[in-house]
Computed example of a mutant assay.
Amino acid sequence: MSQDRFNAYRIMWVLVFFDLPTETKVERRAANVFRKDLIKDGFDMFQFSIYLRNCPSRENANVHIKRVKNALPKHGKIGILCVTDKQFGNMELFHGKKQADLPTITQQLELF
């Protein structure tokens, strides 16, 4: 059972893409609150407007997706994408022309 628990097809990555307006003070504050809410929920910055989070299961990913939806600002464009760890591992990353490593998975402690 524990082998199935950490299967690369069961572990999920949640990616949140956003493009939020920041022309006014109110818009900048809303964008900052949204970004801070993502960080508070365990998301890490992948790029300036892309945050990601590793989840041990689809059910856990759904919990975090629901939290993101509850924190959506009034304006802007937000996308949420959920992929398996296997799919995420197929991504190729580059810094300029030099290939880069994928982000390391942080081990999460589950309490029952």
Rank of each mutant, 00 (worst) to 15 (best):
M1R: 08
M1H: 09
Q3G: 11
Q3N: 11
Q3A: 12
N7D: 15
N7Q: 11
N7T: 08
A8K: 11
A8F: 08
A8Q: 06
Y9A: 13
R10G: 10
I11S: 09
I11V: 14
I11E: 14
I11C: 11
M12S: 11
V14C: 05
L15V: 07
V16F: 02
V16P: 07
F17N: 08
F18M: 06
D19L: 05
D19C: 08
L20I: 02
P21Q: 09
P21D: 10
E23F: 05
E23D: 12
E23S: 13
T24M: 09
T24A: 08
K25S: 11
V26A: 15
V26E: 15
A30T: 02
A31Y: 04
N32F: 10
R35V: 04
K36C: 00
K36G: 02
K36T: 05
L38V: 02
K40D: 04
D41H: 13
D41V: 03
G42N: 01
G42S: 04
F43I: 03
M45T: 06
M45C: 08
M45W: 01
F46V: 09
Q47R: 07
Q47N: 00
F48L: 15
S49D: 10
I50N: 06
I50K: 04
L52D: 00
L52F: 04
R53M: 02
R53I: 05
P56C: 05
P56K: 04
R58M: 08
R58K: 11
E59L: 14
N60F: 07
A61N: 11
A61F: 03
A61I: 08
V63K: 13
K66I: 02
V68N: 04
V68S: 05
K69H: 09
K69A: 03
L72P: 03
L72R: 02
P73K: 03
P73D: 07
K74Y: 03
H75Q: 14
G76T: 01
G76I: 00
G76K: 01
K77D: 07
G79A: 12
I80V: 15
L81V: 15
C82P: 00
C82A: 15
T84G: 13
D85N: 15
K86V: 01
K86E: 14
F88V: 01
G89M: 07
H95Q: 13
H95G: 10
H95K: 14
G96H: 06
G96P: 05
G96W: 03
Q99Y: 02
A100Q: 15
D101Y: 08
D101E: 15
P103T: 04
P103N: 04
P103D: 05
T104R: 11
T106W: 00
L109N: 07
L109P: 01
E110P: 00
L111D: 04
L111F: 08
F112K: 09
